[in-house]
Design a protein around this nucleic acid. Structure first.
Lengths: 233, 233
DNA sequence: TGGTAAAATTAGGCTTGCATAATTTTTAGT
DNA sequence: ACTAAAAATTATGCAAGCCTAATTTTACCA
């Protein structure tokens, strides 16, 4: 309620909340070891921090069971997500950053900017709903669009889909995707799928004759929406 | 020489270097107690940090005598100054901040931005030489313009001068200055000076009939250059 | 030159956030 | 149900940075 009295969380705290949010979204729960791996920190360090976070009322901790964000914790996590994604959008749009290099810069800036600066950046961009990697940007009030994407790895042969979201963390991976023509918005048809988690062959729309092959694991991380077939004819 | 291998200083370290640089510029030397006052930290804490900084080769410490930046320390301090001033310029120019509110935001951001982002911001602004408060911006190579300003408090009655630099830290003070029409670039004539550190009366150029009175202490902090009299006739 | 005030440092303590080693709890397989 | 492996926690310890209280050094003045 009180917008002013933000005790301002530590950088570490903010990173923990982000990691827990991500784990909760992906797998429903956040285990100590998973947090440790996300943050590249030893598990006992996580145990210690979890105690502090739960004493601050940002998470709820069931010992030996895992951790959940409280409403307050989720609010902070979404705020960080907003910061990160607005910053990425701003750096690309206004300062000429490449999509494979914004993440690192945003990772540092998100802890330093004020809410006011974020709102000014967002306004300067026309309040975008998605960041350059296709991820939805939470609103200033802490709402985030529920996305219902399907991984490219699950689209059957003959299926037509549009790439929506690619994740922003690995810049080499992003450069590779760009070299394949795979950016948010790209529409493609699945031409073939090898069994045993084998590669997937795509035909990209609008680039006559451009076929590309994508490994299964990579395809699993590419979030897509199905497209009506007739729209492609 | 190696641009990549920056161990990246802590926020605290960066603040100490900035404070020491400022004190060296002003009074030639930096004493423990002066650093403590600048940073609003207890003197023994400064003693402790001074030991660490001098072990890192950023400052030279003569016990009980004071502290001096090494070449490496000065380089870092100037880099921080550049960051701060480029950020202030950018926030005002591109994101609509007021000149009395940029300082606080820059104070946090300067520790988080990369050199690359600073260069991109500077380029987007056309590589400005001065920040919005009139302070010279060090170059990316660590050179800073030697300014030779005279405090408004030392300009004799009848003297004509141009306000150059006002300092950026106190936002109330900045709002007050703006309300008097005193911003970098303002040209004025000293109409009267009371003795015993009394107030100074100015006539502002170009705003017919606008006379303002400024207290001595405030005038002492307003850096000006003298203007040829005939240029004003 | 002695004595005191100011400045600086040392001594000792606290919190945050990390680590490793040891221990406890949970999970899963037979 | 028992037991080994996996997961989590507790026990300790460390560095950075801050604090207050006590001590040392320097500076200045009569």
């Amino acid at each position: 309620m009180n917008e002013l009295a933000r005790p301002s969380l530590s950088r570490s705290t903010e990173d923990y909340l982000k990691a827990i949010y991500r784990l909760e979204s992906q797998s429903g729960a956040a285990q100590t070891s998973a947090i440790a791996e996300e943050l590249e920190i030893a598990p006992p360090s996580v145990s210690g921090m979890v105690k502090r976070l739960s004493e601050s009322g940002l998470i709820e901790h069931l010992p030996y069971r895992g951790v959940q964000l409280t409403a307050a914790g989720r609010r902070e996590a979404l705020n960080m997500l907003r910061r990160h994604r607005v910053i990425e959008s701003y750096l690309m749009e206004k300062l000429g950053y490449d999509w494979d290099s914004v993440h690192e810069e945003a990772e540092r800036l998100e802890h330093a900017v004020s809410d006011e600066l974020i709102e000014r950046m967002a306004r300067a961009l026309g309040d975008p709903q998605y960041d350059p990697h296709g991820a939805p940007i939470p609103t200033a009030t802490g709402d985030i669009e529920e996305v219902n994407y399907v991984p490219m790895s699950e689209i059957p042969v003959g299926g037509v889909a549009q790439l929506r979201s690619v994740g922003d963390e690995d810049s080499e991976r992003l450069r590779f995707l760009a070299s394949l023509g795979l950016v948010p918005g790209t529409v493609f048809t699945v031409l073939a799928r090898q069994p045993f988690k084998g590669p997937i062959t795509l035909r990209l729309q609008g680039e006559e004759g451009r076929d590309e092959v994508v490994g299964f694991d990579l395809a699993k991380s590419l979030q897509c929406t199905r497209v009506e077939e007739e729209a492609q004819r």
